[in-house]
Design a protein around this nucleic acid. Structure first.
Lengths: 190, 190
DNA sequence: CGGTAGGGATAGGGTTCT
DNA sequence: TAGAACCCTATCCCTACC
């Protein structure tokens, strides 16, 4: 028949990653339409992008907390989730996409938003970016990521919550609500 | 992470079907406002109802062909699983609101008074409603739908024809004279 | 603005290929 | 047995049209 399994080239994979960094996850058609990536990805469909991103994410997440999370899931049937937050039912925060180059999280220190970014802020951004949750990450996920990857003071959660509020009110994070769901705002320039 | 995909429960689906039977298709906001369904469907929007109805109709239309296709696909690796009968996945029957009794044409005591709706009548209404043919459905379409989705006795067509006549003379159906087609009467009494 | 219809995109489960 | 690539389709989103 037609195609005996078209393997992804490193160029395609790089284009996909750059596209996600620029437009965010879940914007597969947008990435495909971006002239910056369309040439490299011209033989891929939006669904292909989605599938490949899923594969990348799955393999990338072995190393963080997911292992323990899954193990816990099997051991403990009742997940005791409750909202001790203020009044938000489900808060997700996603990094604002930026148009040019940016944010190499493996060797950072070289970027700054226009607003003040503390070191905790950078950690928060790293958490959200690396978690790669399609619909954004809620506070609990962010907390867990930071607990996994850093030594944290006892009141880390409070600090993080404060910074999240700041970052989403006048920083690079966006918190938007739609049916108890949050998403990026770069689809809405005005 | 508020709701990464709200799957429809059987209760919700039943409420939607009952709502369509009561108010007609395209009356999504009306169905939602009906106190009889609003509790079950409280987490759904009118657009959700519309989308779900479309999906129900599509799967109903392709009814048996799809199953035949899948059967073919799995013909080669025949695993001798023996749970063929308590499988609820197969042919879904309209579960009107909360009738425990389920329409099986094997006992067609379709002798109705002028008001009562028999099981066969309900199946006919389901057929016409799900077929959603803009100009109504003729007998052949209705026959095919029923054959596709139910186990039918040998003289099903006769029974259906009788009920069609009854339903259109003093029931909820409207017979479109021009082409011997039938349509529901639910579309706005005025 | 609120509602509906329809097109189209995405998410997630499943399947096939290697 | 596992992982990558691909398929299926329920759900969700966007836009045009009242």
């Amino acid at each position: 028949m037609g195609a005996p399994k078209q393997k992804w080239t490193p160029e395609e994979e790089a284009a996909l990653k750059a596209g996600v960094l620029k437009h965010g996850t879940g914007k597969w058609r947008t990435i495909l339409s971006d002239p910056h990536f369309s040439s490299v990805l011209k033989s891929r469909s939006n669904v292909d992008l989605k599938d490949k991103w899923r594969n990348i994410s799955v393999t990338a997440l072995w190393g963080s907390r997911k292992k323990a999370k899954l193990a816990l899931k099997r051991a403990l049937p009742p997940p005791p989730k409750h909202d001790d937050d203020n009044n938000t039912r489900a808060l997700s925060i996603v990094p604002l996409a930026n148009d040019g180059e940016q944010t190499n999280l493996t060797s950072p220190r070289t970027h700054a938003s226009k607003k003040s970014i503390t070191s905790l802020d950078r950690i928060i951004l790293e958490a959200i970016t690396n978690l790669k949750e399609p619909r954004g990450s809620d506070r609990t996920s962010i907390f867990m990521y930071i607990e996994d990857n850093f030594k944290t003071p006892p009141n880390m959660k409070r600090h993080v919550a404060v910074r999240l509020k700041h970052l989403s009110s006048n920083g690079p994070l966006v918190k938007i609500k739609h049916k108890y769901r949050f998403s990026t705002n770069f689809t809405n320039p005005g």
